Computed example of a mutant assay.
Amino acid sequence: MVRNVRAAGAVLWRFRGAGDTPGASAVEVAIVHRPRYDDWSLPKGKLERGETRHAAAVREVAEETGFAAVLGRHLGRVGYPVPEGDKTVDYYAARAAGGEFAPNEEVDELRWLPAAAAADLLSYPHDRVVLSRFTEFPPDTVTVLLVRHGHAGRKKLWTGPDDQRPLSPTGRHQADALTALLPLFGADRVFSVPKERCVATVAPLAGLLGVPVVPEPALAEAPRPPDSPRGPTDPAPAVARLRDIARAGGTPVVCSQGGVIPGVVGALLADLPGGSGVEPDELKSPKGSAWVLSFTPDGRLVSADHIPHPAQADRA
């Protein structure tokens, strides 16, 4: 039986000579030399048991380069054969957030180079493809983490006001998983539809970050008469509000609902040239799932990555 080896890595970047200052004259990326293979590659490594691809990317960058990484847009998945079987690697853009390189068992040299010079030195075509994807857009995109609230039991069994329907034990588990995942992207602000199940999904994250949960009614489902079928909500107001949130910068988390998220993401995907590559089923956005939406500073979407269920999916 062929074994599927899961791995994750990153294009680690920084502004040359200017730390994290936007508008610096040039961007550098980190490539590493591995003496075991005598090659130059992007930092990456295998997922540990029970680890998500996102956590693995941050851990591997730290282990190989000595730098903390803040994840940004997903740069795609590459696959190639290895002695153990077939290897698939998920890559992310990742901003260097401080650190210092020291030679270690896996890596004996790190170089910070402009992307063109790094591409010339890289040993493998798939690394050059990933680096090319990174250079398609400026590195300092704004990440908006659009979350669907966690599981809140069966609506028909809840006798109180719908706005007060709480998370179920499954929903609380999903909230915990999101609290572990979203800081990897540098989450720094938290917005939520003002419903108990939505607020409760992101409240643990807000507590961890020491920020309030800001009410965001523009991302709520439109009211409808009792027992009426749920129809699609006009996405335009929510799309406009999400773009405004993106333009404000930082890394905001926004918790919304299943009647809103598919329409919003579907409308935003029209920004992407040449098709989005997003499957229709992904737009359904199961409870507890998240979209990593990357915007230019003026609010144009450049990347969309769906995380189906951080409590279960994409783990080794």
Rank of each mutant, 00 (worst) to 15 (best):
A96P: 02
A248I: 05
E84Q: 15
I31G: 06
D120G: 13
R315L: 03
W40M: 10
L184D: 06
V58E: 06
L184K: 03
H126I: 02
Y92N: 02
P83F: 08
G277A: 06
A30W: 02
P229R: 01
D305A: 13
V129E: 15
F134C: 00
S41H: 11
T179P: 14
V213S: 12
A55Q: 05
A7E: 09
L181K: 06
V29W: 04
P138D: 13
G150C: 01
V302R: 09
E48V: 08
P262C: 12
G99R: 05
G85S: 11
D90P: 11
Q174A: 11
V27G: 07
E51P: 14
F191S: 08
K155T: 15
W291C: 07
D108K: 04
G99L: 08
A220I: 00
V78M: 14
W291D: 02
D298Y: 00
R315T: 01
Y37V: 13
A102N: 01
L113I: 04
S123P: 03
F295V: 03
P161N: 08
L157K: 13
S41P: 00
D140T: 02
P235F: 05
T65P: 11
I307K: 07
A218H: 02
V265C: 10
L293C: 11
E282Y: 07
L178R: 03
F185V: 04
P237V: 01
R315P: 00
T65G: 12
D163H: 09
E84G: 11
A69Q: 02
E28L: 13
L110M: 15
D188P: 14
P138Q: 09
R300L: 11
V292H: 09
R148P: 12
P194N: 04
V58M: 05
E84M: 12
A238T: 00
V32R: 09
F101Y: 08
V2D: 14
G259Q: 05
D244K: 09
A152R: 09
F67P: 06
E279F: 10
P297L: 05
G98N: 03
D234K: 01
P252D: 06
V278E: 01
P280I: 04
K87P: 03
A10S: 11
P217C: 03
R59S: 08
A8K: 01
E60S: 10
V190D: 14
P166Q: 06
G79F: 01
G98F: 03
E64P: 01
D227T: 08
F191A: 12
A119F: 05
F191E: 09
D314E: 15
E196C: 10
R241H: 15
L242S: 08
P215C: 06
R53N: 07
V265H: 05
L205A: 14
R189T: 12
A30I: 05
A56S: 15
T233R: 03
A187M: 02
L184M: 07
T201C: 10
T88L: 12
A240W: 00
E28V: 02
L208A: 15
V130F: 12
E196H: 11
R16D: 13
G259N: 06
V292N: 06
L242F: 11
R77Y: 00
V254G: 12
T65L: 13
V130E: 11
Y80A: 14
G160D: 12
L205I: 09
D162P: 00
V193D: 14
